[in-house]
């Protein structure tokens, strides 16, 4: 699966939104660490993929018509064995069909459970004046309530990435407060720079969102990712 084939398929299906599995695979190929996420279209396949990834796993509905997956009962977490995965698969499909009857359901995503880390978000929006602009912030309430985010216009230099990380008001959280260890800022910078290059290479990307990314004392990993294409 490369960018061109994903683009082609999305265009053929009349979609602007890449599904989570597609988005993560493309990002992974671009050097961005993501939680391994694979697509299953049958319960048996879901069980097999869960075994490959390793338990516990998360299972989520994949549908361009359902954006708030947990609201419709489309997400099951902490599944510890194949039986639980099989039940979750059927329940998710039933819940989704009931909540959004005419939704086109691509399948379900089977995803490893990431160890919880400090939540950050990394995204890209297209500014009408400056073009692609990268965004960085702390996740959760920091971004929702306090709008504590930083921006840089693409293309990015290493200086830009470092400054983005240090520009936010809550930067002390990254440096470790109340006895918590500092997170791996270099890993955040590398992730931001790799996303920047990925976007530069693919002008068809209108919007990109990784929320959350977990960052640890060593390394970082994107738990969820969303890519919107520009209209064909």
């Amino acid at each position: 699966m490369n960018f061109e084939s994903v683009l082609h398929q999305a265009r053929a299906e009349g979609r602007d939104l890449l599904n989570e599995v597609e988005a993560k695979q493309l990002l992974s190929q671009a050097g961005v660490p993501v939680v391994e996420t694979l697509l299953a279209t049958t319960a048996d396949q879901a069980k097999r993929l869960a075994g490959e990834i390793g338990y516990p796993v998360v299972v989520k509905v994949v549908s361009a018509d359902i954006s708030h997956k947990s609201d419709v009962g489309g997400v099951k977490v902490g599944l510890a064995n194949a039986e639980a995965v099989g039940e979750a698969y059927e329940a998710i499909l039933a819940n989704s069909r009931q909540a959004v009857p005419d939704a086109v359901i691509t399948g379900v995503a089977v995803q490893g459970m990431a160890v919880e880390g400090t939540e950050i978000i990394v995204g890209m929006v297209r500014d009408p004046q400056f073009g692609p602009v990268m965004m960085f912030g702390l996740g959760g309430i920091f971004v929702e309530l306090l709008k504590d985010v930083s921006f840089r216009v693409l293309p990015l230099t290493e200086r830009d990435a470092q400054q983005m990380v240090n520009d936010i008001k809550g930067r002390a959280i990254l440096d470790g407060v109340r006895g918590q260890t500092a997170v791996d800022k270099a890993a955040i910078c590398k992730l931001i720079l790799n996303v920047g290059v990925f976007i530069e290479q693919h002008p068809e990307i209108q919007e990109l969102d990784m929320n959350p990314v977990f960052v640890y004392a060593d390394g970082a990993v994107a738990v969820d990712a969303r890519i919107v294409l520009s209209q064909a």
Binding site: D127, Q129, F130, V133, S150, F151, R152, V153, D160
Partner: peptide
């Protein structure tokens, strides 16, 4: 003039 997003303009100055 279309004034645009001030947060992004401020970021442009720093950048």
């Amino acid at each position: 003039s279309l004034a645009g997003s001030i947060e992004i303009f401020d970021a442009v100055c720093r950048q």
